[in-house]
């Protein structure tokens, strides 16, 4: 009975939290959980970052050689295609010589997925639409009035808001919607990796540590029983 009262009490508490998951104009962000264990996905994500983001956004805490090691990138590809600047060493951070505070206000992306969450970034990238009232000509459902232009328009195609506030596709982009979706997943995966490179090692090795302590507990339990 006591437990029931507790339960009812807590359910009523959680009931009041409605509306707090709001994602900008949306009721809820599209759900996406990043994974850093698919190396191909990370490499594709790096490609999108390099082609579409890197002219404004830095990765100020990530070193090129760390990236090379973790994503298994050949030295020549790294130096010729990715860095392509002989003044930048492989041990430098991924900043392309951009200043620390971007003149156009583009934030550093290294820790962005940790600040906003995977869901938010993933949804944000998908919900640009045409809006002539904005200086950039486009607006965003998750972050209304965002200063960022719809740079992925060539891939995604144009979108528009209908009278119900739903997104509708106006024109085709270079990618089919499913392809674009998977490209955005790659990009978020890559950014999630950039936010915490140690995550690859962490999530891979954790299970062994836990298993070790299961054994530890079992042995110590037997010892305790012996002396009980």
């Amino acid at each position: 009975m006591k437990k029931l009262i507790f339960l009812a009490f807590f359910i009523s508490l959680f009931g009041y939290s409605a509306g707090e998951n709001k994602c900008g104009e949306l009721e809820k962000c599209f759900s996406f959980e990043s994974s850093v264990h698919d190396r191909d996905s990370l490499q594709r994500g790096l490609g999108i970052y390099k082609n579409y983001c890197s002219s404004c956004h830095t990765l100020r805490y990530l070193r090129w050689n760390r990236l090379q090691r973790d994503l298994d990138i050949p030295e020549t590809v790294l130096i010729d295609d990715l860095i392509s600047n002989e003044n930048i060493k492989t041990s430098d951070f991924v900043t392309f010589g951009l200043p620390e505070i971007s003149p156009i206000g583009a934030p550093d992306l290294t820790l962005r997925t940790r600040v906003r969450g995977d869901d938010w970034i993933y949804t944000y990238l998908q919900t640009f639409y045409q809006d002539t009232s904005q200086a950039t000509g486009s607006n965003n459902l998750v972050y209304p009035g965002t200063a960022m232009a719809h740079v992925l328009i060539g891939l995604q195609g144009t979108q528009e808001l209908d009278s119900n506030g739903k997104l509708i596709r106006l024109s085709k982009g270079a990618l089919e919607p499913e392809e674009f979706d998977s490209a955005m997943k790659d990009l978020v995966n890559f950014l999630a990796y950039a936010s915490e490179p140690a995550r690859i090692e962490r999530e891979r090795n954790g299970i062994y540590i836990i298993l070790f302590f299961v054994v530890f507990t079992a042995v110590m339990w037997l010892l305790y029983r012996e002396y009980k």
């Binding site: 530890f216 042995v219 010892l223």
Partner: peptide, 20 residues
Amino acid sequence: TRRKALQITSSVVGAVTVAG
């Protein structure tokens, strides 16, 4: 015998933990 075995096993596990 059992007690001795447990003492040794737990000591080894303990040492591995500290080393780890």
